[in-house]
Amino acid sequence: MMKLSCITLVALLLNGCSQMFDKHIEYASVKPDAFPMLYAVGMAPISLQPGASDSQKILLAMRASKLEAYRELAEQVYGQRIDSSNSLRAMVAGNDQFSTSVQGVIRGAKVIKTYAVDDAYITELELDFEQVYHLYQNVYPRQTIKSIHYY
């Protein structure tokens, strides 16, 4: 009987450490102090684009310069992954391999200017992080605990 009482007492003590009370957690939004503005420029040669006519080449250069500008923005936001390998044989450099990649999602970028200069097509983009913050707040709100009330 004494053994059963001790087990019951230990069980009650361990249960006391668990959450026996209902609680209400109040959250407050956390807004960053500053929002950077990022700029990117993409360029593409017009004459090197495949196409039967000059207008097709210009359209392809427009698209290529825009994609290049987005790549540059993604590079600024997410960074660039660099993979490299080098082999040595008898203290002489052999195979050098080097590759880079950028991966990410850019939301809220604006095309500021798009224009042709000589044989190149240029696209300028702008990314306002305040707008990006508001876009992500709707989906993934950043919050901190404001207060906890136990009942």
Rank of each mutant, 00 (worst) to 15 (best):
V30G: 00
K66P: 05
E75N: 13
Y136R: 08
Y121D: 08
Q143K: 11
F129W: 02
I122P: 04
D54C: 04
T144I: 14
D83K: 07
K66F: 10
Q137L: 07
M2D: 14
F21A: 11
A11I: 13
A109N: 12
F129D: 02
N95Q: 12
R81D: 15
A116W: 12
S18K: 06
I148D: 01
K146S: 03
A93W: 09
F98D: 10
Q76L: 14
Y121A: 10
N15V: 15
L73V: 08
I25K: 03
A93K: 10
A90V: 07
I58V: 15
Y150Q: 10
Y70P: 01
A74L: 06
E126V: 12
R89F: 08
L88N: 00
S99H: 04
N138L: 12
A90I: 10
K31N: 10
E130F: 03
A64C: 11
Y78L: 06
F35Y: 13
M37G: 02
M2E: 15
V139H: 02
M1Y: 06
P50F: 09
M37R: 03
T100D: 07
Y121L: 14
S84F: 13
C6P: 05
H24M: 12
D22W: 02
T144F: 05
L67H: 04
I25R: 01
I82Q: 12
P141R: 09
